[in-house]
Design a protein around this nucleic acid. Structure first.
Lengths: 341, 341
DNA sequence: ACAACCACTGTAAACGTTTACGTAAATTTA
DNA sequence: TAAATTTACGTAAACGTTTACAGTGGTTGT
């Protein structure tokens, strides 16, 4: 059986209070007895029972994280950012993935609630219907920070990037390269990032006096295999696009592969730009908007700690900076003879 | 303040025992009082305090997982496999990454130990020096299962694949394609998977009466950026290789990119085969050995549950099956005119 | 010589549960 | 109708800590 504070006390003929004081070090206790206690603790392989302490302190130093997936680099990097801050603050992080399922997301959040985590960092599934759940948690004073993907109708703290602005910049880049018929493969229609990136796309076209054509926008989704249907559609148009702005890197990558399969050269015939730069995208020389993943994690974690330590702190939205990285999937039209395969 | 079982008891004028029985449902309690208790519990937003229960039951339904990284798909998929089994069994999973650092690995394990997890699933960092730590934990009856990367001198339960066999098959495939000078970019020298894959490589050459040449083996490491030095070296040889078997996909991918950069065609001039198939590898049409990631997670989790529930169960090694997927990075020599770019 | 103080340690309550045990009332059995 | 059984509930201990409070014996100050 595991040794407890009582075993040490009994073995030394002192009270458990003295043992506790010796072990925690905080209180007044004779140096010599302290030594004896520590020695006996080592001898008995004593490990404090954290649950007893937690019960007393009404804390458990755990927070929960729910993300739609952690297969691709994006959320894993954010999570590492979260853990760096949280572990430093003495917290453990329970990580769950909803696998883009609203139902599993709900189950995960409820599991975390049952585990009595002190706070939550959440990025919602693409079809999340859990507003009521989050609203209840917020009402019950559960500290929550949303990252990247947020629910539009929920008043909660968030860490995001300016999707509209960076979609604008990506499309502006294509315009400046000389592309004339720029299509957009958009994500799931009611996902907030989708909406903001579509907005950036149309805003950029308008800003440069180019026509915004509904038929050049298709809502395909956010997973790589969904790119195919988008490419099929765009290539079936009478006037085909000469550039495609994809809602994210997976769709952009799927697009490039699908175009290649049909023998269409990127960027010679069609240029492609992605969003949320990924390692695979980098390898394919895909231009993309890079998000500051680790920083998102850091900032979200710090905001959460703040909420935990100062209950009732007001809701806050932090908008982080991003970066457009231009690679050879989108080069100026007049240089195209020099482009890579 | 959070409502407790006492609050409910006081509000209804019954004892806390009755409330507890009504809530857990297991014991003899009048249907009507049970209803009253449940109603009041809902009214007061009662949530059971799991730490009190844990303290009493001397359990906390948590296990820990430590992996070298979870940025690439490999460990994330394993972790999902682990979580599927563990969550089903009512366990929470604490996930840590050592970032390939022996030191951080140790800290993580110690953190998990302090959190009093009931068991551990571990894949060690490439330079892990924590044998003594694991030996102590095993001696102290901590249930541990090692996956994928194991420490050679530690007698512990493991879930692995037969690295030698599958390296053999990969190299055999190159031999059957007609390649004559097959090089091997190996991983970190004292990592067990490295050793076993090198063994498979040399065994295959021997089995087909081909010379095993030390100069065609280079221990470069396991991260993509380490491929460059390997390629540099191999291309500096008087007799250059016509095929490269890489210790893993990142090295294989780095190799392909480096070869491309130098204008060397894959597989026309040099074929490449990887190991532990990755999404990026698939996109680059890289032949590779696919590991059953989810299954590794499932099996490891089930073994761990078994160990937790039946203390003293003997050490066990499970060897899972794998699969060699052939793509256009390695095609038979006589077909090379048909090969893709 | 007595009060005041100090350094150290013990007693006991508290955190929120579960559950063995006891018991009163209600019901069944002979 | 008395004994036996069942039903429903209360009492209290237990899980392993931390810590307020209350000593105890010794030292210092006057």
């Amino acid at each position: 059986m595991k040794a407890t504070i009582k075993d040490i006390a009994r073995a030394l003929g002192v009270s458990i209070a003295t043992v506790s004081r010796a072990l925690t070090g905080s209180y007044e206790v004779n140096v010599e007895t302290k030594e004896r206690v520590l020695a006996k603790a080592r001898e008995l392989h004593y490990k404090p029972n954290i649950q007893a302490r937690n019960l007393l302190k009404r804390k458990n130093n755990m927070i929960g994280v729910v993300v739609p997936e952690f297969i691709t680099f994006f959320f894993p990097e954010i999570i590492i950012g979260i853990q760096e801050v949280m572990n430093n603050a003495g917290y453990q992080v329970l990580i769950c993935q909803s696998n883009e399922s609203s139902e599993l997301e709900r189950k995960n959040v409820e599991m975390l609630e049952e585990s009595m985590v002190e706070g939550l960092i959440i990025s919602v599934a693409k079809e999340s219907k859990n507003i009521a759940l989050y609203q209840r948690l917020i009402n019950e004073q559960m500290p929550i920070v949303f990252i990247n993907r947020v629910l539009p109708d929920l008043e909660a703290s968030q860490v995001i990037i300016d999707d509209r602005k960076w979609a604008f910049k990506a499309v502006e880049h294509l315009i400046k390269c000389g592309y004339k018929r720029i299509a957009h493969l958009a994500g799931n229609e009611h996902l907030s990032v989708t909406q903001r990136r579509v907005q950036g796309y149309t805003d950029a076209l308008k800003a440069y006096d180019m026509p915004v054509q509904d038929k050049l926008i298709m809502y395909v989704g956010i997973q790589q295999d969904r790119a195919k249907v988008g490419v099929n559609y765009l290539l079936s148009l009478k006037e085909k696009p000469d550039a495609i702005f994809a809602v994210n890197d997976p769709i952009a990558i799927g697009t490039i592969l699908e175009l290649r399969k049909r023998g269409i050269k990127v960027p010679e015939e069609i240029a492609v730009v992605g969003f949320s730069e990924s390692p695979t995208g980098r390898i394919l020389e895909l231009s993309s908007v890079a998000q500051p993943t680790f920083k998102i994690g850091h900032v979200a974690a710090e905001m959460l700690l703040n909420k935990i330590n100062k209950p009732g702190i007001p809701v806050e939205t932090v908008v982080l900076d991003a970066q457009l990285n231009i690679r050879s999937s989108s080069i100026p039209i007049h240089k195209k003879n020099k482009g890579p395969s």
